[in-house]
């Protein structure tokens, strides 16, 4: 495939990952932190940036590992373990580097990093990338787009929840219940983007 074609495809995949195929609202990945850390906009922005960064880097790393290590060795079934190890190692490494060289950033982002290792959206993005057979550039776009989409969803959710805090919600629906209904309405809104592509 020629270069510009692939670049164009990368942009399309990236856009699709942010809006129409939002990893949180259409594939339900990363729900646990989405429900737990979406009470305040500030915290959710911090977590969102951490996810964008980690997701972009790990999908690319996992693509390289899958394409150049697992496929030649015929060990594709081993990918779950390899991806998990790469993600955990990468997060640990970033945490150490941040702590050493940028204490300010570590203060604001660092507390979210351990949470990310168990965020299923990170592993999910890598598994989708393998199943859909993306090329390198498309994988880059997909990882970045998924991260941005996740961040968009959690920040919007936190904003809505902050404004909702004074509303009178039925007792059984308080907390996760109402959050799920908001997420459902957001998912409806995001489906509307389907016509754009």
């Amino acid at each position: 495939m020629n270069w510009t074609g692939e670049l164009w495809q990368m942009l399309v995949v990236c856009f699709a990952a942010v809006f129409t195929g939002n990893i949180l609202l259409t594939t339900f990945l990363g729900m646990c932190p989405f429900l737990a850390v979406s009470r305040q906009v500030k915290a959710s922005v911090g977590l969102g940036f951490a996810v964008v960064f980690v997701m972009t880097c790990t999908t690319v790393l996992n693509w390289l590992a899958y394409r150049y290590v697992l496929v030649p060795l015929d060990l594709e079934f081993f990918r779950f373990i390899l991806f998990i190890i790469i993600i955990a190692t990468f997060v640990q490494f970033v945490e150490m580097v941040l702590e050493r060289y940028s204490p300010a950033l570590y203060q604001s982002l660092g507390i979210f990093l351990p949470l990310i290792t168990v965020n299923c959206a990170i592993l999910g993005a890598s598994l989708f990338m393998v199943i859909r057979g993306y090329t390198f550039l498309v994988t880059l776009g997909y990882g970045f787009g998924s991260g941005v989409g996740w961040m968009l969803a959690i920040v919007a959710m936190a904003g809505i929840r902050q404004n909702m805090s004074m509303e009178r919600v039925p007792k059984g629906l308080q907390g996760p219940g109402i959050a799920l209904i908001i997420a459902g309405l957001m998912a409806l809104g995001f489906i509307g983007f389907t016509g754009v592509l």
């Binding site: 007792k171 059984g172 109402i178």
Partner: peptide
């Protein structure tokens, strides 16, 4: 479609929690 899952789960949690309370 995806929104249906959110709505169904929310209603179910509501019902079960009300029952449990």
């Amino acid at each position: 479609m995806p929104p249906g899952a959110f709505f169904t789960l929310a209603c179910l949690i509501w019902a079960l929690r009300a029952f449990q309370a």
